[in-house]
Design a protein around this nucleic acid. Structure first.
Lengths: 164, 164
DNA sequence: TATTGTTATACTCTATAACTATA
DNA sequence: TATAGTTATAGAGTATAACAATA
């Protein structure tokens, strides 16, 4: 998959920016995700369910609509997903004071615990990886460069920011 | 979700390496993935199906077992997934010459077209983003840093490398 | 009229385990 | 005995569209 693409390119494959960045980006992401998913599943949650929990974490709650935009889960799917989280007692719901069509979804105490525990576990696991791989200076540098990229994407679709 | 985690941490949240890297990493990745998924779906494929196609792209084909390891799709799921790709005429199968239990899966001509077209489209879309976001020097720098991270993860689970 | 969320449909992915046919 | 792949099962995520209640 790293080879050249003859059809519509304007130069050699190794000059295409996205080819040089995307594969390393995806692999670094997958390295993180594999571990993350393992922790999430060990708590009896699916990735989609934890995605909702992570999005609700450290917020005052939000409507289904906002949750849908931020998690990239369509509203129809979200209804079922929230049903399962309600069953597990990880979230609470309340009819909005200002718009009676809308439910405000929040983490329950139990949900907040799951959120923190999963995060702490992941951090404890991941920190040593990053610290072995990079110097302090490289870490700051990487962070800056990644933010430049997501800022550029953010300009295109501002409403999907802040998912994880 | 960027706030502190009191439980088992050894210092302030902003000193935790993973907290400083992972969110930007995930957001940069999602910026890419959202666009990628859009193209993939517009060709009538699911992300999982394209994952298989991308893994087979530019190879001489491979067994279900290898495909399963590389795509992180379990063998049971893979059988159904390959059925659908066979129906669509995007892959071919052949009994292995050396092990009659095993099927060698390859991209068909049509599958290869889908692979290249999707890639070309994505590159054409993504290159301007990266070029706006980063200088040539920053691109090389970012690539190097990302590779250091995935190399570190790779040490842990060598067999899952080379997925995308 | 437009928007929030629900329901219904049909398909796909998921983990898991029992199964077969080879090795 | 072990491995490659299939089948079966049950649950969960997916897009989509029609729908009710409210704005």
């Amino acid at each position: 998959m790293m080879k050249k693409n003859k059809s519509q390119e304007s130069g050699p494959a190794e000059h295409r920016v996205s080819l040089r960045i995307i594969r390393p980006l995806v692999e670094a992401y997958l390295g993180f995700v594999r571990e993350s998913d393992r922790h999430v599943r060990s708590m009896g949650l699916t990735p989609g369910q934890f995605d909702v929990i992570a999005t609700l974490g450290d917020t005052e709650g939000m409507s289904c609509r906002e949750l849908s935009v931020r998690t990239l889960v369509t509203k129809g799917t979200l209804t079922g997903l929230l049903d399962r989280l309600l069953l597990k007692g990880l979230i609470t719901e309340e009819v909005s004071a200002t718009d009676r069509r809308s439910r405000i979804i929040r983490l329950s105490e139990k949900g907040d615990e799951v959120f923190r525990r999963t995060f702490d576990t992941q951090i404890a696991y991941l920190d040593p990886f990053f610290e072995r791989a990079l110097t302090e200076e490289e870490i700051e540098n990487l962070r800056t460069l990644l933010l430049k990229i997501s800022d550029e994407f953010f300009k295109k679709t501002p409403n999907v920011r802040g998912k994880v």
